[in-house]
Amino acid sequence: MKLREIACGFAAGLAGGYLLQKAFNNKRLSSEQALQHVKKAAKGILDIDGAWIYLSSQDMNKNGLSYKVYKGGLTAKDEQNIHHYDFIVDASTGTVLELSEQS
């Protein structure tokens, strides 16, 4: 093998690895997948009756950190009342960043 062939193979492998890394780092959950994460996380503490989510993600800064997030809401019932909750979920990991009850 010539040195030129080895160098070309090395460069092609390096470029391919870089592109794969970019593809995996920019992976985001769909809004439906993010909603399923929220419902799963809230299932133990709320009796969920309904849920909705915005289809497009938004940029958000919280505590000095930047996130791509989805926003949405849940309705939950107890014995007498229906309660409405708003949530913010990380679009990359599905981690619930905020869950607050509406008055």
Rank of each mutant, 00 (worst) to 15 (best):
K27M: 15
Y85Q: 06
A34I: 08
K71N: 11
E101G: 12
D78P: 12
V96L: 09
Q102N: 13
E79G: 04
C8F: 06
N81M: 14
M60D: 07
L20V: 14
G44D: 07
S57A: 08
A12T: 06
C8I: 09
I88C: 06
W52Y: 11
T75K: 01
T95W: 02
E32I: 12
A51R: 00
Y18C: 10
L20S: 08
N63W: 05
G44L: 02
Y54H: 07
L55K: 13
K39P: 05
R4H: 11
A7Y: 04
D49E: 13
A76G: 03
N81L: 09
I82N: 10
V69D: 06
G50Y: 00
L65P: 05
A23H: 12
Q80P: 04
G73R: 00
H37I: 09
C8S: 10
K71D: 08
S103C: 01
S66R: 03
G17T: 05
F24R: 14
N61V: 15
K71S: 11
I48Y: 00
A15L: 11
I53K: 00
L3H: 06
Q58N: 08
K27F: 13
N63A: 14
S103A: 09
A15W: 02
D86N: 08
G72L: 01
S31A: 15
H84P: 02
K43M: 05
N61C: 10
M60K: 05
A41N: 10
N61Y: 02
A23W: 10
K77E: 06
G94V: 08
Q80H: 14
L55T: 14
G13A: 03
N25G: 05
V89E: 06
Y18A: 13
I45M: 11
S103K: 12
D49N: 10
K27G: 07
A23Q: 15
D90F: 03
K2M: 13
F10T: 13
E98N: 11
S66Q: 08
K71Q: 14
V38P: 03
S31Y: 13
A41D: 13
V69A: 03
A41K: 03
A23F: 14
T75W: 00
V69F: 04
